[in-house]
Amino acid sequence: MAEKYKVDKDLVRMEIVDFTFPEKEYRTSRHDTVLPYNWALGPTWTRFFDGLKEGKILGTRCKKCNKVLVPARTFCPICYEDMQEWIELPQEGSIETWCLVNYKYYGQVKEPPYIIAQIHLDKADCSLTHFIGGFNLSDPDKVRGKMKTVSRVKAVWSKEKHGDIYDIAHFKPV
């Protein structure tokens, strides 16, 4: 049945070929919209990114529920209290979930294949979204086998830091 679909893996598109509309040539009209944005990071995320530049992963603690959240927050999403106590988190943690990204799409932040994971850093009360790397990802079945044995990971820093989330290159298995 697979031959009924035109599979364009680069775009994850399924296009059915056994259904056709009336044989008239309908035109489409191409227009692109490109808009520039400049996002204010505010004091909390500015300090969080400054921390990354210094090789530190910073979170903040809620004075009411005591939770430590990372990336650092200005306020607790549950208690709505200011989160002003800064905590430098350990750079090791456990993997909560992961997925191997094996297809391309517009606006993607990295050339596939790569692994995205939720990493629960020690002493944090939430998980952080980042990459898992440091080993060969070309064969999905081998990656699955390898990931079965991985539970603990450690941050690997980029050679050049720009004060952004990519200052952490990825997390590698410990």
Binding site: Y37, F49, E96, G107
Partner: peptide
């Protein structure tokens, strides 16, 4: 569609999980 879905997240903290299959695969494994 995927490019539009990338704009649902702010571009500096959670952008790496942009793209629906990624978010939902993460959820499935969790």
């Amino acid at each position: 569609a995927q490019a539009t879905m990338m704009t649902i997240l702010e571009p500096f903290l959670q952008v790496v999980i942009g793209g629906a299959p990624i978010a939902f695969s993460l959820q499935s494994r969790e």
